[in-house]
């Protein structure tokens, strides 16, 4: 599929000659502000005056409620059956306000929940969401992200975000957009831990997003089983369910060889260096420890450790630096 659009209103030029879409899959379009993500989504939704490219329900970045009651807005453009479904979504998303209330009295977060519920209730094959959680309080965001991931499971969706955690919770595949172009496409975990270039690494931030299944938890510590490895972190995912572990590249300490030095880190994994890349004044090191992880080192540390591609290293991460989210 190919999308080319010039959008003079904000001066940005979108140039996506080809990208991959698969039905029944959730694609994250990730990128910094002004990278053209919104224009890309608007082009797909047919908002740029051209042909609609996807039969989609589209949630704009700034959802607008028309004058009337919240309930009337919730059912706008929907059949009775879909409106009832929208009501269920709204309740699940924590929209507790009475639907008789005037839409103008709703808070930003309530408006976004309402519009999100309405968008999901329509029966178009695709769902296009532009920063669907941006108007919410930070404290509500993770919970709603999990609800949204649940509501989207099995649906074909394209979700624009610049938030790493949202991308990790909501996405299966991810396209990184910088300057109106898609620079890398791949699974969310792959793009985060093995960015294809320095530009992409800078756009996604150096982070580890590792997919696995929740193991048995004890107290506040969660365990994520990834193949033969286990990642311990903070969180309460339901045991046996798919989940992801998130930690920054700066949280990883590397030791040469099979032994980690003494320290409080709970997580130790041994593996081999896959790639070393300079990024500004720091070095990104991708290590295969049964899963791919990325660490950040200073050039001095790299020299002291004497690492090269294929070197055996042990990576250590404190459990408190790892966040575990259900997906």
């Amino acid at each position: 599929m190919s999308v080319t659009a010039r959008y003079p209103a904000d001066g940005s030029i979108l140039d996506v000659s080809e990208f991959h879409l698969e039905e029944g899959e959730r694609l994250i379009v990730f990128g910094p502000n002004g990278s053209g993500k919104t224009t890309f989504l608007r082009a797909l939704a047919g908002m740029l005056g051209e042909e609609r490219q996807l039969d989609a329900a589209y949630l704009p970045q700034h959802p607008y409620l028309f004058r009337g009651s919240a309930g009337w807005n919730l059912g706008l453009g929907l059949t009775d059956e879909q409106a009832a479904l929208a009501g269920q979504f709204a309740r699940r998303f924590g929209l507790s306000v009475q639907l008789e209330r005037q839409a103008s009295q709703l808070s930003g977060g309530e408006r976004q929940r309402l519009c999100l519920a309405r968008t999901l209730a329509s029966n178009h094959p695709w769902v296009l969401l532009d920063e669907p959680l941006s108007a919410l309080d930070v404290s509500d965001r993770a919970a709603l992200a999990a609800q949204l991931a649940h509501a989207l499971s099995g649906r074909s969706a394209i979700i624009v975000t610049h938030d790493r955690e949202e991308a990790a919770i909501l996405g299966e595949r991810m396209a990184v957009m910088v300057g109106g172009r898609i620079l890398q496409e791949g699974s969310v975990t792959e793009v985060f831990s093995l960015p294809a270039s320095e530009e992409i690494a800078r756009a996604v931030g150096t982070a580890n997003v590792i997919s696995g299944f929740a193991g048995t938890a004890d107290e506040s510590l969660a365990r994520v089983v990834v193949g033969d490895s286990v990642i311990t972190g903070m969180g309460t995912p339901p045991p046996g369910e798919p989940c992801r572990a998130l930690f920054g590249a700066e949280a990883v300490t590397l030791y040469r060889g099979r032994e980690a030095g003494s320290g409080s880190a709970v997580n130790h994994w041994t593996g081999r260096v896959v790639a070393i890349r300079e990024s500004g004044r720091l070095i990104h090191i991708s290590v295969d420890v049964g899963f791919l992880l990325v660490a950040l080192l200073t050039p001095g540390s790299l020299e002291a450790l004497g690492l090269g591609a294929g070197s055996e290293v042990t990576a250590a991460v404190k459990a408190t630096a790892v966040r575990v989210v259900a997906t």
Binding site: R42, A45, G46, M47, P60, Y64, F66, G77
Partner: peptide, 18 residues
């Protein structure tokens, strides 16, 4: 009307009369 109102109106995919 604000641009966001027009965007939302288009996004809702209503019939012309509605």
């Amino acid at each position: 009307l604000p641009p966001s109102a027009h965007e939302q109106l288009a996004a809702l995919r209503l019939t012309r009369i509605k």
